[in-house]
Amino acid sequence: MERKPLSKITVSEIVTDCGINRNTFYYHFEDIQALLKWMLEQEAVEVLKNFDLLLDYEDAINFVLDYVEENKHILNCAYDSMGRDELKRFFYNDFCGIMLTIVTRLEEILGLSLSDDFRNFICDFYTEALTAKLIEVMRSKQPYDREKLIRFISITFQASLPEVIKRACKEE
Rank of each mutant, 00 (worst) to 15 (best):
L114W: 11
I153E: 10
R167L: 13
K4A: 11
I155R: 04
S7V: 07
S7K: 13
L35I: 01
L54Q: 08
F125E: 11
D94Y: 13
F125K: 15
C123N: 03
I102M: 15
Q42G: 15
M138P: 04
I122M: 13
V164T: 10
E163W: 02
K72V: 09
A44W: 09
L110A: 01
D66A: 02
N71W: 00
L54T: 01
S7F: 02
Q42D: 14
L100T: 09
L53S: 06
K133T: 13
E58G: 03
F51Y: 15
P143E: 10
E2P: 00
M39V: 08
F90M: 14
D117P: 01
I74H: 13
Q33K: 14
L110R: 00
T24M: 12
L87Q: 06
C18Q: 15
L112V: 10
M99C: 14
I155K: 08
N93W: 06
F152K: 15
N93P: 00
R139V: 07
L87N: 00
L87W: 05
E147K: 05
E107V: 02
F91N: 06
R167V: 11
H73S: 15
L65F: 13
E58S: 10
F118K: 09
N21W: 07
V11D: 06
E30Y: 06
I9N: 01
V47Q: 05
T10A: 06
F63H: 12
N71I: 02
L75A: 04
D80G: 13
D117S: 04
M1N: 07
I98W: 00
F91T: 00
T156D: 13
Y57A: 02
G83Q: 03
T127N: 04
Y27R: 09
K141S: 11
E58A: 02
N21G: 07
R167Y: 12
D85Q: 12
Y144V: 09
K4V: 04
I74G: 01
A34I: 01
N76L: 14
A60N: 08
R89A: 15
D56Q: 14
T131G: 10
M99D: 03
G83L: 04
E147G: 05
I74Q: 13
V64M: 10
K133N: 08
E128H: 15
E41I: 05
F121N: 04
D85E: 10
F91W: 10
I102R: 01
W38S: 15
Y27E: 01
K166I: 11
N76I: 11
F118N: 09
C77F: 02
A60K: 00
R167M: 13
N23W: 03
S154E: 06
E136K: 15
